[in-house]
Amino acid sequence: MKVLVAVKRVVDYNVKVRVKNDGSGVDLTNVKMSINPFDEIAVEEAVRLKEAGKVDEVVLVSIGSAKSEETLRTGLAMGADRGILVNTDDLAVEPLAVAKILQKVTEKEQPSLVILGKQAIDDDCNQTGQMLSALMNWPQGTFASEVALDDTQVTVTREVDGGLQTVKLSLPAVVTTDLRLNEPRFASLPNIMKAKKKPVDKLTPAELGLGEGDIKPRLEIVQTQEPAKRQAGIKVVTVAELVDKLKNEAGVL
């Protein structure tokens, strides 16, 4: 059985992001980039399925600039077998475009299971997995906190409002990962070295049969704003004063 895992190169979760002066987006110069944490969980899950003997091959796909190869190497160091880089250069691809590219890759690779992060921590869209499922007409198990795979179906425990929901999907299927699915492993230096030698195919959307119109942005970013700076607090002496301020100044009582 083959598993396809989608990985995205995003601003590292430790970075305090800054907005560009002109408000056109986030400043990425000299900013540490990493694999999207939810995608890292997806890679880990796929590698664990392989270690458990349920999967023969783990294929990674990343969509973005040539630098996304770094992200593929991170996943390869964790134990994936090979990578596919779909180079979109500097074009900002939106979830639907990504889902269309993934659809083409999925048709080409014929995996039994596609695992994606539930969302990327840069745009927080949470759309790609669902869109891919619709485009492929495959069942979807989103926000997975547990995945059990057998030959014909996958059982997914989903994190939903107020509890857990368990669904059974027949294969092939799309699964998106939630935070508690697993704890990704430490990629050690020997494995980073081995990952250097693993194959990465480089493709373009055109080579996958997608035209410019298929992947061009449909949204226009009007403005990007930093959150308002936190105001300095004040100290109150008595409970009465606190209540007064909450009532009359903060207006929350």
């Binding site: 270690e51 492993r185 430490f186 990629a187 050690s188 230096l189 020997p190 494995n191």
Partner: peptide, 12 residues
Amino acid sequence: ISTWDIISGDVK
């Protein structure tokens, strides 16, 4: 195998 294989979790 090496100690790193065990500490990193690469080998069970």
